[in-house]
Structures are given as structure tokens and as C-alpha cells.
């Protein structure tokens, strides 16, 4: 083997590198690095933090907790009226605050997910989709306009019934998401998967959930490392555009890497005896408070339904 000869650019002075001068006074690469780190952090830690798992909800037996939460989620899809949904949201919110979730965390959850569903539901408020009494006129078209054989109405309006159904949908998703978040944040991921399994969820499903959760943490870590490796090689500030371009390339590398990484994580789990059934440190058996919790969840839903039908 011959000793490699270093190319001449290797020993060029740093204060006179070839190529365009880097712009000064810019911190480089921060936004994406921060996002990745935050995401990894959130997944690894915030999913369930000790303060939530030690709260009253965290102490409820995981199977009972799942049953109760599922009942509430099911209830949220049954209840129609805005009033009943609001009551449910109020109770869910109180529960979230009582187990120590900060308004900031809730804000992030509510901004992210329901906004997304809002984008989907918004068109249905228009009279093009939902007929009904006009609440707000958006755009006056005039009569007799049509696209192909489809006659457009005289004006495009937001209808009252459209608004109502959008509001109902939004409240309902917010309720379901918050309830699911209550469950996830107050239970350690392996305990949760284990409880689902004991409630009869198929083994393959549990395996996928387990692998996904373990693998995501490791994968995000790898993503962060690739970004750090790139950062350590870039000299000047990088523009947002070049950073975006890098993300594209990075994702490609990540996909290639993720296959091997996924395999390795799986190997490491199998090697230590994982056979598809995740066993966790034993949780105390069902207690009276677990029964009370399920009864309370069921009672609340029954109450809301009765109130709506006959109240």
C-alpha cells in the first residue's frame, strides 16, 4: 500500500480559501438542527415524562386506562351537539392540566393537529359543498356561470350549516387527539404497547409499534448526526435554500442508512430475547381506583348522550 499524497489544497492557508467569500455575521445551520434535535428530544423524552407518569392518570393500570380513554374517544364521536363537545373538551383540558401538561405543550398539540384538519374541513363550509342559510358571502359571481354541466351558484358563501359541521368536526378531532395525548403522555411507551397486547391486539401490530418507537429515536439521532457532520464541514453561513437542498440529499442518505439501522436495532432486540412479545416490568394488578376510572369515563359519556337526547 502506498502512502497517500495529500493534494496541495489540503495545506492551503485557511484565511485564503478558494471560492466565494462566505457572508459574515450569520449563524449557520441553526433552524434545521434545532428542529431535528427538538423532534428527537420530544419523541425520546416528552412522549411520556416522569411528571405525567407519576400523576393520578399515570398511576391507573394501563389496560384500564386504555379502556377508559377509548370509551371517551368513542363517546366523542357519538356526541353530536356543540355543547356536549365543549363540555367534554373542558373536562379533557382540566385533566390535561391536572396531570401536569403545560399550556405550551397543549398549545403545540392544538395548533399543529387541528389546524391541519381545519385545512381539510374548510371547503365544506362553502355553499358549493354544504347547502344552507348564508352566513357570510365571499365572492359575488353573478347568475348563469357554469363549468361544463355544473351550474355555479350566484355567489360563493359560507353557510351556517357548513360552519356548524366544521365546528363540530374540529371540536371532535381536538377532543380525540387530546384524549389520545393524555394516554400517551402518561404511560411509558413499552408499557402501553404491552397493555394493548394484553387487551388482545395482534402480535404483529405490537411488534411494529415497538420497533417504530425504538427505531425512530435512533433514526432521528442519525439524522442529527448527519446534519452535524455537514455542519462541521461547512465554513461560511449557509443560506436557507442550500440548507433545504441539503435536507433533500440528507433524507436520501438517511433512507439508505435507515434500512441498516433498522436491521441493527431489530438484531439488538432479538439478540437479547425479544420475540415479538414485549415484556415489561410488572405493573400492579387492577385496583378499585381503576374500576372507578373506567366507571367515571363510561358515566361521563352516558351523561352527555342522555343530556343531548333528552335534556
Amino acid at each position: 500500500m502506498k502512502t497517500p499524497v495529500l493534494p496541495e489544497w489540503f495545506s492551503q492557508p485557511v484565511d485564503n480559501p478558494p471560492g466565494p467569500k462566505p457572508r459574515e455575521g450569520r449563524r449557520f445551520g441553526l433552524p434545521i438542527r434545532k428542529t431535528l434535535a427538538e423532534l428527537a428530544e420530544a419523541l425520546a423524552r416528552e412522549m411520556s415524562s416522569p411528571s405525567q407518569t407519576n400523576s393520578w392518570l399515570g398511576k391507573i393500570e394501563p389496560r384500564a386506562k386504555i379502556v377508559g380513554i377509548l370509551m371517551l374517544i368513542f363517546g366523542a364521536t357519538l356526541v353530536h351537539g356543540l355543547g356536549a363537545q365543549m363540555v367534554l373538551l373542558g373536562i379533557t383540558l382540566a385533566a390535561a392540566l391536572s396531570i401536569g401538561l403545560s399550556p405550551r405543550q397543549l398549545g403545540r398539540l392544538w395548533l399543529g393537529v387541528p389546524l391541519f384538519s381545519l385545512a381539510i374541513i374548510l371547503p365544506s363550509t362553502l355553499n358549493l359543498v354544504t347547502d344552507g342559510r348564508t352566513a357570510l358571502t365571499l365572492w359575488h359571481l353573478g347568475a348563469g356561470i357554469h363549468i361544463g354541466s355544473w351550474n355555479l351558484p350566484e355567489a360563493i358563501t359560507i353557510t351556517a350549516s357548513g360552519l356548524l359541521s366544521a365546528g363540530r368536526f374540529l371540536l371532535r378531532t381536538t377532543n380525540c387527539i387530546t384524549l389520545a395525548f393524555l394516554m400517551v403522555s402518561s404511560t411509558d411507551a413499552p408499557v402501553l404497547v404491552n397493555a394493548f397486547r394484553r387487551l388482545g391486539m395482534p402480535k404483529a401490530f405490537g411488534m411494529i409499534l415497538t420497533m417504530t418507537q425504538r427505531f425512530l429515536v435512533v433514526l432521528l439521532r442519525a439524522a442529527e448526526e448527519i446534519h452535524l457532520a455537514k455542519l462541521s464541514r461547512s465554513i461560511g453561513g449557509s443560506s436557507l435554500r442550500s440548507e433545504q437542498k441539503w435536507v433533500g440529499a440528507g433524507i436520501a442518505i438517511l433512507f439508505r442508512r435507515s434500512y441498516r439501522l433498522g436491521l441493527e436495532v431489530n438484531y439488538a432486540m432479538v439478540s437479547r430475547g425479544y420475540d415479538g412479545d414485549l415484556r415489561v416490568a410488572s405493573v400492579p394488578g387492577l385496583q378499585i381506583r381503576d374500576g372507578l376510572w373506567v366507571a367515571a369515563a363510561g358515566g361521563l359519556i352516558a351523561l352527555l348522550i342522555v343530556w343531548e337526547r333528552f335534556g
Binding site: 425504538r214 439501522l261 438484531y267 439488538a268 432479538v270 439478540s271 437479547r272
Partner: peptide, 18 residues
């Protein structure tokens, strides 16, 4: 699985708990 232990080359992948 009990009798054979494996110290992986990449500890990153081996450690997957919180």
C-alpha cells in the same frame, strides 16, 4: 438468547431504551 450475548459494533443501535 440467554446463553449468547452480543456486544454490537455500533452501540448506538444497541441502546434503544430511554
Amino acid at each position: 438468547r440467554q446463553q449468547v450475548g452480543f456486544l454490537f459494533q455500533n452501540s448506538e443501535a444497541q441502546l434503544f431504551n430511554s
